[in-house]
Each structure stands twice: as structure tokens, then as C-alpha cells.
Amino acid sequence: MAAIVYFRKVSETEELVEYAFGDEPDALERRLTMDKGSRTSTARDARIDRTFLKASRKLNALHAERGVWPERGMSVS
């Protein structure tokens, strides 16, 4: 079974980046905040599920690869 998650940057400060994310590109109903210093993430709804983990891991991987926090993206496995 394929798993997919979409994400889009909502805001960015010196310390944090916030993303909207979800299973459908037009329904990014959940929020994830990434701490730039520690590169740890938190879910606004406190649900640590597969979708949240997939988004968090992909965001960290893209940042490591590109050196910037992506504006938007997706992860498929």
C-alpha cells in the first residue's frame, strides 16, 4: 500500500518553520512546526502518526539536501 503526504510552508521565523500537511494536495488540514535549531518537529494536534512522521522526515531530508526549508513538496513510498 502506497503512502503519500503533501506539505506547504505557511510561515517562517528565525527559529521555526510551520507547514500545513495532509494526504490530499487540496486538503492540508494539519499543521507541523519545525524547530530550526534542533530540527525537531511537533504536530499542532499532538497526533504522532505515519502522516506526521513522513512529512517531518521528508522536510528534514530536503533541508539537509538543499540547505533551505522547502516551500512545498510531497513524499511517496
Rank of each mutant, 00 (worst) to 15 (best):
I48L: 11
S38H: 03
K36E: 03
L59F: 06
E71H: 14
I4G: 01
Y19V: 07
A2R: 08
E71C: 09
T13C: 11
T33A: 13
A55M: 11
L32V: 12
D49K: 05
M1K: 09
M1V: 02
A43V: 11
A64S: 15
L32H: 08
A2V: 10
F21Q: 05
W69K: 00
K58G: 07
V76W: 12
D23L: 15
S75V: 09
R50T: 15
M1D: 06
A55E: 01
I48C: 08
S38G: 04
S56Q: 03
F21A: 05
D45C: 11
T51W: 00
M74T: 04
R39A: 14
M34R: 06
P70Y: 10
D45Q: 09
S38W: 06
T33P: 10
R8A: 08
G22K: 02
R57A: 15
T13V: 12
M34A: 05
I48W: 09
D26S: 11
P25K: 09
R44V: 04
D45F: 06
H63N: 15
S56I: 00
V10N: 14
P70M: 13
D49Q: 08
Y6H: 07
V76R: 13
G67I: 11
M1W: 07
M1C: 01
I48Y: 13
A64H: 09
M1G: 08
R72C: 10
A64I: 12
L32W: 09
K9Y: 08
A43T: 13
R44I: 00
E29K: 15
V68Y: 05
A46K: 15
V76S: 13
N60Y: 03
L16H: 07
P25F: 05
V10G: 05
L62M: 10
I4F: 04
N60P: 08
L16C: 02
A3I: 11
G73W: 07
F52M: 12
I48Q: 08
T51L: 06
A43P: 07
R72L: 12
T42V: 07
T40H: 04
H63C: 11
F7G: 03
F7I: 07
A2Y: 03
E24K: 12
T33F: 13
R57C: 12
A2I: 07
R30N: 00
R31F: 13
E71T: 15
T40C: 05
P70E: 09
K36F: 02
R30D: 00
R66Q: 01
A2P: 06
S11C: 05
E15F: 10
M74D: 01
R66C: 00
V68K: 04
A2C: 02
V10W: 06
T40V: 06
S38I: 03
Y6V: 04
T33G: 10
M74K: 03
L62D: 08
T51N: 02
L59Y: 04
F7V: 09
I48F: 12
F52L: 10
R47C: 13
